[in-house]
Design a protein around this nucleic acid. Structure first.
Lengths: 339, 339
DNA sequence: GGAATTTGCGTTAGCGCTAGCGTAATGATT
DNA sequence: AATCATTACGCTAGCGCTAACGCAAATTCC
């Protein structure tokens, strides 16, 4: 019987055990562990020492239940295998870790129903705050879902209420700039591979595309626009569809780099030269944009910075700070071989 | 005062509220919500209806504290922005979601200290089980950390104890096959861009590389081996270093596709043609391997399947099932333009 | 030097939920 | 009819932790 605990292995050790070992009350242990005032230096040292001896590890769930703060956050994204969101999540997670918060990363597979389910699930976890990046939900649904959290930050959606912040990229200006550049280079038949209609940044990029055309004296032509699933294969399929229409095209602006790279793959298969026959511009500047051949011109965004800013602002909201709205981040045109 | 709850917004609704609304005890509500026996169909229907009316959402932390099961799992990986791990995490997360489990995705930035911290943190969360993919910890540390969980699955590490399973890729055989192919193609000076020494799959690939050389009648030459950080930039730097040695090289086997792609970037910058002067083979077949130019030959692994299998086995362990050890998965040589 | 504050701890009462057992009703069995 | 299972609930007691308050001793103040 003596070694029973040993045999059982991971029998959790609790505040009570530490309190007994240190000869103090549970509250004193709690205060010492959490670095709160009300404990003498001597007692604090003894408690921490005993806690370390016993391998005490506070239960975050018990703490969460008692204090109604879980020190746990969430981030919801359409596709973690998309490098844009992977890098965003990594940056956000680095910041969260530096503040000793844990992070649920929820992948929604671009599916609004799964996005709702993910938000419901996070609510059940009583997390302290959530980042929703590239939400595919209608604004009303998103607003309703998000306001059930203590704090929230939306990436690339408009702010939806109090205690909700937003971090946006000026995709409209970016797309307009891309189109303007193509027109200056003499392109006249500029196609647009749009992203999901549910994506706000997709709608903004489309709007910027139209604006760019008008400002350049060209008329938007619906024949030149094709929606695309935001993946490599989606971009290839959309490009194939446009080529199948047999209308002149001398440039392509894509929803994002994945779509652009997929489109270039299709152009190559169709025997069209890039940028000779058709110039291509993507968006985001994911690491692979520079590596494909021809390398991809794109509207660059500092994705890591975006993730860090989003998480930093979420943490600030959680501390009750009031934030000035953040102006949209202007992407920067990076010219490579594809234009 | 009437609308106070309304003003406060998200006042949580508890089992007690639902019980009162349905005119039953809390336990009956609990049983109904959790689909457990002991409730008549009629009462169950009424409870679920009231719960829906009130927007009741069970607190997973309270449930976790009371039942000692959190329905929450974890996955620890060196780098979520590496598509190998991103795809692995996505597949694992899809399986977890289908079983209504939430998943902590912990990114360790290739740092063993952060990996330990991540495991400690997950222990504090009282998760039901953990997947550790590509652990960079020494075997003893990993074994000690992992056995504190109810169940665990290691990806690309040896099994470390009871209630711990492992899913492995036969990287050794893969690397040996890559080398054999290069030798058959007439290459004689085959370099190896090794991954982190802390990575088991890196060590296995190195071992396979040596084996392949020996079987092909070539002597391993330490001058042809260079360690690399497992990223694009790391691969480029390692390649630059090897080129700087000014020794003949006619082929490169890389730790993974990222390293290989980085190496190809460097080779291009150095004016070497691939595969003319130097053939390159990567490992994993991440989606970008097919898109770079020249496209990359690689040792293909079905990464999604790996993730699904790992999570499926973790869930099985969690249900107390005893698993037959899984034989190592043999990667498949995919030939593209780089060889 | 007495009142007012501060410091250092302990006590009590939950957080929201479920395990485990109790119990009254029904139906099945001998 | 008496006995035994079975079903459908309710009650109690926590899970491990902390908020809020209590209270004595030490310190500060005028």
């Amino acid at each position: 019987m003596i070694n029973f605990v040993h045999i059982m292995g991971n029998q959790r050790c609790t505040v009570e055990d530490v309190a007994a070992a240190a000869g103090v009350s549970m509250m004193t242990v709690s205060r010492a562990i959490n670095g709160r005032p009300g404990v003498s230096a001597e007692v604090r040292r003894r408690v921490l020492e005993k806690a370390a001896d016993l391998g005490y590890r506070p239960s975050r769930i018990a703490r969460g239940l008692a204090s109604r703060k879980t020190s746990t956050l969430g981030i919801v994204l359409p596709d973690i295998s998309n490098p844009f969101f992977a890098i965003l999540a990594k940056a956000a997670s680095d910041v969260a870790r530096s503040e000793d918060k844990n992070l649920f990363i929820m992948n929604t597979d671009e599916d609004p129903a799964l996005e709702r389910a993910a938000l419901d699930s996070l609510e059940s976890e009583s997390i302290d705050g959530v980042i929703v990046a590239g939400s595919r939900l209608p604004i009303a649904t998103l607003a309703a879902a998000v306001m059930r959290f203590d704090s929230a930050v939306l990436v690339n959606r408009e702010t939806a209420g109090p205690r909700v912040d937003a971090v946006n990229v000026d995709d409209r200006a970016g797309a307009a700039e891309a189109v303007a550049y193509l027109i200056r280079s003499g392109r006249k038949r500029i196609a647009f591979l749009a992203g999901p209609t549910t994506s706000m940044s997709g709608r903004r990029r489309f709007s910027g595309y139209c604006q760019g055309l008008k400002e350049g004296g060209l008329d938007p032509d619906p024949e030149l626009v094709r929606r695309s699933v935001p993946t490599l294969d989606g971009g290839a399929a959309a490009m194939r569809f446009l080529l199948g229409r047999n209308i002149p095209i001398d440039a392509v602006v894509a929803y994002n780099d994945l779509v652009a790279i997929g489109a270039m793959r299709e152009l190559k298969d169709a025997g069209r030269s890039v940028p000779g026959d058709i110039a291509v511009i993507g968006a985001d500047d994911v690491p692979y944009a520079a590596l494909v051949r021809p390398s991809l011109s794109t509207m660059r965004v500092d994705i890591s910075a975006l993730g860090r800013v989003a998480m930093t602002r979420l943490l600030a909201l959680g501390e009750g700070k009031v934030l000035e709205p953040l102006p949209a981040i202007r992407p920067e045109l990076v010219l490579r071989e594809s234009t």
